[in-house]
């Protein structure tokens, strides 16, 4: 079953076309990899799917509902969560509070509730805290719950971003280069974690440069180059695709020339 579908997605910044008529669909329950050379439009696609940008042309359906004009917070409420390539935690807040914030859209306490704290509010707070601890345990950050987010080492910050995204109770989770800057050990942990998230029944869309990671866990891979989709298939198919080889080889050659 198709969970999310982007049709004919085009994004133009100024005069520059960052995405050009891209069609992409994500099946429920799969781990889909999104790869491509730098500047291919991967993050732009993420930003379209999560409502940060509104596409210049094309449409996006999540569970058959058009979402292209929704704001990011509305999309999160519908069940799409994301992490950021450049890590955007709430640095001054504790690790636990970061995950508690993640549950914002699943809770309802307002100003009056906060001031008078009726039993319902106390219950909610207790539930939220327990759930946050559960999630932290799940990603392996329980001991760090009280630390400030910005004091965590890099690898753990990436995990916290995932924990925070999971706290929003998504059906689909978008991970933007989750392994960037990680050492091999951390990357292996991460692969395990992503697998575990997928086993919980969550659909995963993953941008990643680490080919081993992508080829290892993705059931299907979509390749972008210069804003266009150039391949879509199993890791095996993509690996042998002529266009993909050209794109990557071309990028490598470009680098050498520079």
């Amino acid at each position: 079953m198709t969970l999310l579908e982007g049709k004919n997605l085009t994004m133009v910044f100024g005069g520059l076309t960052a995405l050009d008529s891209v069609n992409i669909h994500i099946n429920k329950g799969e781990i889909l990899g999104l790869i491509g050379p730098n500047g291919a439009g991967k993050t732009t696609l993420f930003n379209l799917l999560t409502g940060v940008y509104s596409p210049s042309r094309g449409s996006i359906y999540f569970k058959e509902r058009e979402i292209k004009n929704l704001k990011p917070y509305q999309i999160t409420r519908l069940g799409i969560a994301r992490t950021f390539q450049n890590i955007r935690l709430f640095g001054e807040m504790s690790v636990l509070d970061n995950v508690i914030i993640g549950q914002h859209c699943r809770t309802r306490t307002g100003v009056f509730g906060a001031i008078f704290r009726p039993p319902a509010v106390r219950d909610e707070e207790k539930r939220v805290k327990e759930k946050a601890m559960e999630i932290l345990e799940f990603v392996g950050l329980a001991e760090a719950a009280k630390e400030k987010a910005k004091n965590l080492p890099y690898g753990k910050q990436r995990k916290l971003e995932m924990a925070r995204a999971l706290a929003t109770e998504p059906e689909l989770i978008l991970l933007d280069e989750p392994a960037a800057g990680m050492n091999p050990q951390e990357t292996n942990d991460l692969i395990e974690l992503i697998q575990k998230v997928n086993d919980m029944g969550k659909t995963v869309l993953l941008i990643e440069h680490d080919m081993k990671l992508v080829m290892g866990i993705c059931q299907r891979i979509v390749v972008l180059d210069y804003g266009k989709k150039i391949a879509d298939g199993t890791p095996e198919e993509v690996k042998n695709d002529e266009n993909v080889l050209k794109a990557y080889l071309g990028a490598a050659l470009d680098k050498e020339v520079k």
């Binding site: 990011p72 917070y73 955007r88 935690l89 640095g91 807040m93 914030i101 914002h104 699943r106 929003t168």
Partner: peptide, 16 residues
């Protein structure tokens, strides 16, 4: 506080 720390990330957490 989340808005102060990072408005876009706050929005991504479902905060209006």
């Amino acid at each position: 506080i989340a808005i102060r720390e990072d408005e876009l990330a706050a929005e991504a957490m479902g905060i209006n």
